[in-house]
Computed example of a mutant assay.
Amino acid sequence: MATRARPSACSHTDRVFLYADSLIHSGGVPKLCPGHGAMPPPEGQNMINESALLESQSLRNSVLERTDVLDRVKALSLLPDGMHVTTAMVATYFGVGLEAIKSLVKDHRTELEANGYQLLAGEELRSFKNLSGLQSHTRSLAIFSRRAVLNVAMLLRDSEVARQVRMYLLDMEYLARTQPVDNPVHRETVSLDDRIDQRITHILGKTVVPMFNALIETSGEHRKELIALRAGVQRIERRLHQHHTRLQRLEGVRDDRPTVGVMAAMDAMNGRRFEHHIAKLLHRDGCTDVVVQGGRGDRGVDIIGLTAAGQRLVVQCKRFAPYLNITSPEVQKFVGAAKVLHNADVALYVATCPFTPEALSIAAETGITVVHRGLLEEWSAGEPLEVLE
């Protein structure tokens, strides 16, 4: 194989990409043996449950690489260095008080330190402030890496955000561990391209991003450029991972799946498929004349029908990422369509994400039933909606 000519003088950035390129071209992609197109089965076929994550450090360690889950549940704000957060920022992310995080750190300090928690003081703190651009007059500062924040999510019991992170981890573990073993057609679909994508994702996450982190810590002149480049690499890594996971979900959906995969399956749906999923739930709960009409000419609603009691029903469906929000203007628009254009008795706004407080207030004032992510999970798992009974 021909080798690429290398420049005589390489910048920090050049060295990062040349090294990553050499990994990919010199054995980074595993070879397929003749007649063995499928990936080997994952080790440990027993499913991880939420209580096990809370109790077992070894199980927590096994999923600590999945830090992308944090931003899927809720956007995590970082310090100017793009790598760390403070105790207050962790508390804000999980919606708990400072003392809850401090108490958790006290109980699990050794584990958290192994995953990036640090208490900075003296020269170490001054150096960190200079490198990160942080403006603070405190004599000590506790900082958490993204890995440490994920560790906190698997330890923190009294936080809905932490629970959602654990559920997302369980969803991803379920999808990674449960692959049909008696379907040779499915095994053959794991192509060379799929395996190359997986290997590139692995190299980006395990090698290129950590190298950027190290360079950012030591470079002053090109710091902003390196942070921007690292963010670009992380976006590519996330998109490759999301693409691969979405394909797995779409190709591996099974009717007998436990409820742990419910939200992951819905997150993988496109808008039209999500609308039909909601229509099936309406049918299940006794609604009749259910019609999916999303698209042009739908007059502002996606589904119409009648409840079991014969009331006129309209539904708006939004399949958004879980870290986004339904805002008040979107609810106001639906109010007009539901109440004025359709004269609905029952109006549902169903979304795979949360609603802002203002949106919830408008919905309550105008008689709109909000089905947010948590309620949608329960509804999909078999709990009937009270408004449909």
Rank of each mutant, 00 (worst) to 15 (best):
I196N: 03
H243T: 11
A228R: 13
L204K: 02
H222T: 09
T245V: 14
S219H: 09
L247I: 12
V233W: 00
R230I: 00
G232V: 03
H241P: 05
L204Q: 01
E251P: 05
G205Y: 07
L247T: 14
E225A: 13
K206E: 14
I203W: 02
I216Q: 01
T245Y: 10
H244T: 11
A231I: 04
L229E: 14
R199I: 06
E251F: 12
R195P: 05
T207F: 10
V233P: 01
T201S: 14
L215D: 10
L240T: 01
H244D: 11
H241N: 13
Q198C: 12
R239C: 10
V209D: 02
I196K: 03
R195S: 05
T207L: 09
R195Y: 06
H241D: 12
G232D: 07
T201F: 06
G232C: 06
E251A: 14
H222R: 11
I227S: 04
T207M: 09
K206W: 07
H222M: 11
E221D: 10
A214K: 05
V233M: 01
K224Y: 07
I200G: 02
R238Q: 06
G232W: 02
I236E: 03
R235H: 06
V233H: 01
H222L: 08
R235K: 07
I216R: 02
K206I: 06
H243M: 09
I216W: 02
L229W: 08
R239I: 08
R199S: 15
Q234C: 07
I196A: 04
R238I: 03
F212E: 00
H241T: 15
I203V: 02
I203R: 01
K224G: 12
Q234P: 05
V233T: 01
L226H: 00
D197T: 09
L247K: 15
I236K: 02
I236R: 02
D197I: 10
V233I: 02
V209I: 04
S219D: 15
R195Q: 08
R249M: 03
S219K: 07
R195T: 06
Q248G: 14
G220L: 13
G220N: 14
Q234I: 05
R195C: 07
R249G: 02
K224Q: 13
